[in-house]
Amino acid sequence: MSDDIAICTQDLVKRFRTLRGMVTAVNGVTLQVRRGETYGLIGPDGAGKTTTTRVILGLLKRTAGESSVLGYDSMRNTYEIRERVGYIAQQFALPADLTVQENMRFFADIQDVSAEEQQRRIPELLEFAGLTHFTKRLAGRLSGGMKKKLALACSLVHEPQVVLLDEPTLGVDPVSRREFWNLLGNLRAEKGLTIFVCTPYMDEAERCSRVGLMYQGRLIAHDSPKMIKRLVPGRLLEFTPSNFVPARQIVTGMEGVLEVQTYGVMLHLFVDDVARRRQEIAGALAAQGITCVGMREIEPRMEEAFISLIRRQSDQSHGV
């Protein structure tokens, strides 16, 4: 394997036995994360992100396929992986009755960081996370955003080369979410850290160098955010029809209309040719007495791309 690869899986499968029979949580996932990149595993709840992450880390046994971190096999070399990797589990809770400083020391001790090294690294990490003024505060009394930053600092105390973060911004408000991502960006730029993030937030994909879109145990796309957004069919037209339900019926199946998505009170249409279809659509709706407000071409975002990809996926599997 090339030295350039930080995380690698090949046809990874994980099945669980449950009361209702076997469940395939991860169904043939092949992905590669290069060193120094920010990789986002993106998908809704239950897509298999957490299971994939846990298998990569060797916390869960894989059913089939391969997985490794920095060239170390997830199942056979867990100790080597543990030394070189930082991890924040989903809904991970720091000891609430320890102060910020004590938490840092606690995690440093667990990771066998020497006393001298702790003296150097802990202040540096706290400064970096913007927690220098809160060293004596109990972790339980930090705000949600600060807790996440402390968790990040703790996961970095043994100077890992790779961090895996499982939904690190879940339930965090937009301001703190932005701060957290800015921290990750700085870490990548300054230290060359490889970052692997699982998230249900589509807009966080824009923060990643590459993303894998996960749905029902499968990786349905795997590329840079820009390229994934190009996987949508055609170009995107947005408008607000004066009468929503009949308008949607009229445009669905019109020539050149490749896909129809609803967006609140608006319709999002993927069309083959904006200039041409724009006129035709407005005309067809006007013929039925429906007016269109604010018709314009917009850039598809990750969410539109994801929805489009999922739809095509389920159409294929249902043989439509």
């Binding site: 709840d45 609140g264 009170v265």
Partner: peptide, 21 residues
């Protein structure tokens, strides 16, 4: 819509706007 997948969220907003209309 905390913790709900994007397709379900779209459907949910469809319902909201149907009521608003």
């Amino acid at each position: 819509t905390a913790g709900v997948d994007p397709i379900s969220r779209r459907d949910f907003w469809g319902l909201i706007y149907a009521m608003a209309n």
